[in-house]
Simulated scan of single mutants.
Amino acid sequence: MEKSLVSAICKQVYRRFPEMEGRQPRVKAQGEEQVLLIFSAKVASESGHSIEKTVRVVANSGGKIIKMSESR
């Protein structure tokens, strides 16, 4: 996937999940038409504990986001 498409997807992720700002995703191919981007960051919970937060984004080869999910 082209760097310009990855950076455009990153901007959308950063807008929705500001705590991921500056994190570079791991990019994995999902067949010929789709790509999976995985963002990870450690964030503080309300109780002060540190937790790992992951955002997974599935996008097509044109850079359109198909699915976005987060886990804590």
Rank of each mutant, 00 (worst) to 15 (best):
E21W: 11
Q24F: 15
L36W: 01
G62V: 10
V55S: 02
S69C: 09
Q34I: 00
E52V: 12
S61K: 12
I66M: 09
H49P: 00
Q30N: 14
V57T: 07
K64E: 12
E33H: 04
V27L: 12
F17L: 04
S50F: 04
G62I: 06
F17W: 12
E70W: 02
S69F: 10
I9H: 11
P18T: 09
Q30G: 13
M1R: 03
G63Y: 03
G22M: 06
I65E: 01
S7C: 04
G31D: 00
V13C: 08
R26D: 15
L5N: 04
S47R: 09
E52P: 01
G22H: 07
L36I: 12
R56E: 12
A44I: 12
S71E: 01
C10H: 08
V58W: 03
Q34Y: 11
S61Q: 11
R23Q: 15
V57M: 09
A41H: 08
H49S: 08
K67C: 13
M20W: 05
Q30I: 15
R23F: 11
V6F: 03
A8F: 09
K11L: 10
G31I: 03
E70S: 07
A44Q: 13
P25G: 15
G63A: 02
S61R: 09
V13T: 09
R26G: 15
L36M: 08
P25D: 15
M68Y: 06
K42G: 00
R26C: 14
A41N: 08
Q34C: 06
A59L: 06
V55Y: 02
M68R: 08
I51R: 10
M1Y: 02
L5S: 05
V43Q: 04
Q30M: 14
R15I: 02
G22P: 04
E19M: 10
V58L: 10
L36N: 05
L36S: 07
Y14V: 00
R26E: 15
R72W: 06
S40M: 04
L37V: 14
E32T: 09
Q30P: 10
E2N: 01
A8K: 13
P25N: 15
V58P: 00
K53T: 09
V6G: 06
P18G: 07
A59F: 07
S61V: 08
I65M: 03
S47H: 06
C10S: 15
R56P: 01
M20L: 14
M20P: 03
I66F: 05
E19Q: 07
I9Y: 12
A44M: 09
R56S: 13
V6E: 06
K3T: 08
E70V: 05
F17G: 04
A44N: 12
E32V: 06
S69A: 12
R23T: 15
S7H: 11
V58Q: 01
S4E: 13
G31W: 01
R15H: 06
S7L: 11
G22I: 05
V13L: 07
Q12E: 14
R26I: 15
S7M: 12
H49Y: 06
E21P: 02
V35P: 00
A44D: 10
V43S: 03
R26K: 15
A44F: 11
M1C: 01
L5P: 01
K67T: 14
R72P: 01
R15V: 03
G63V: 05
Q34N: 12
E32M: 05
H49T: 10
K67S: 13
